[in-house]
């Protein structure tokens, strides 16, 4: 296969950036999309030019590192597939392919196709956990969990934190990502004690990070490589509304108590 790539090149966060065109010759249909980029980069290096910077790590669709918009669609638009799992057999000889990074205010571009997604980490730090220290946990079977809840929780927990949902959303909203974590923990008995403060704090941090609002367009669900369902957003909105109605949870005071 012979292809033409239109690739977003940007030196650093301050550079305005531009598209550049590169040929991708003699590409095999069995190559993955990233292996095709490896070939192009090898040739660029051999020509003494700087290769295209692009994030990837596990290359088996689970680490969430790869983050390319291909012809306008995050991860290339194949159902339930990350870029690293996308193979060239889905493209046609002679095709021109446009490759861009995730674009969102909360994800500043570091170089070329690489962006900074630490905003997602900050949202988890705001409450995406169960506050248990190591040690002293009760027996794993002490608290039965219905299989239905465990399975649904797992559906939400499957999120790989890649940020494709943000890249696909015209508002650059992170609601699908946040709702996946809120639902994963909110569906389990272990997540109940902090359920309200969790959703309040995570949504607050999401808003502060510069993500947009959700207008329920569903493009996030369409591109999610783990097929995380839009219904988790509804679940989170319910939790959020309930938490607002009940008022802010009382601030814990550190010390005190009798004795």
């Amino acid at each position: 296969m012979n292809l033409t790539l239109k690739v977003w090149r940007q030196k650093d966060a301050k550079d305005p950036g531009r598209f550049e065109t590169y040929p991708a010759a003699n590409i095999l249909p069995d190559m993955s999309f990233l292996e095709m980029l490896d070939v192009v980069n090898e040739r660029l290096i051999e020509e003494g030019r700087e290769p295209i910077a692009c994030d990837s790590d596990c290359r088996e669709g689970i680490c969430g590192t790869c983050s390319l918009v291909i012809d306008g669609r995050p991860h290339g638009g194949h159902h339930g597939t990350t870029v690293c799992q996308l193979h060239m057999r889905h493209f046609q000889d002679g095709q021109t392919i446009t490759i861009e990074p995730w674009r969102a205010r909360a994800f500043p571009i570091l170089r070329d196709l690489v962006c900074d997604r630490t905003a997602l980490d900050r949202i988890i730090q705001a409450g995406g956990f169960v506050s248990v220290n190591t040690g002293g946990a009760p027996d794993g079977n002490a608290l039965p969990v219905s299989k239905t809840d465990a399975d649904l929780s797992m559906d939400a927990a499957a999120c790989i934190g890649c940020g494709a949902c943000v890249a696909a959303c015209k508002n650059a909203s992170a609601m699908l990502f946040v709702s996946a974590k809120v639902s994963h923990l909110g569906l389990l008995p272990q997540g109940q004690p902090e359920r309200e403060r969790r959703v309040l704090n995570m949504v607050k941090t999401m808003d502060e990070a510069g993500f947009g609002n959700c207008t329920v367009l569903g493009s996030c669900e369409a591109v999610c490589p783990k097929e995380v369902s839009l219904s988790f957003i509804a679940r989170m909105n319910r939790d959020y509304g309930w938490a607002i109605l009940r008022g802010n949870p009382r601030r814990q005071t550190g010390a005190g108590g009798a004795g």
Binding site: F129, V130, V132, T134, G135, A137, P138, D139, G140, L143, P144, V145, S146, K147, A150, S153, M154, A157, H184, L185, L188, Q190, G191
Partner: peptide, 15 residues
């Protein structure tokens, strides 16, 4: 296993 369950790891379960 106990620690991970307490953290909310959604292990597979029986009915």
């Amino acid at each position: 296993i106990d620690q991970c369950v307490a953290q909310g790891v959604p292990f597979a379960r029986e009915y």
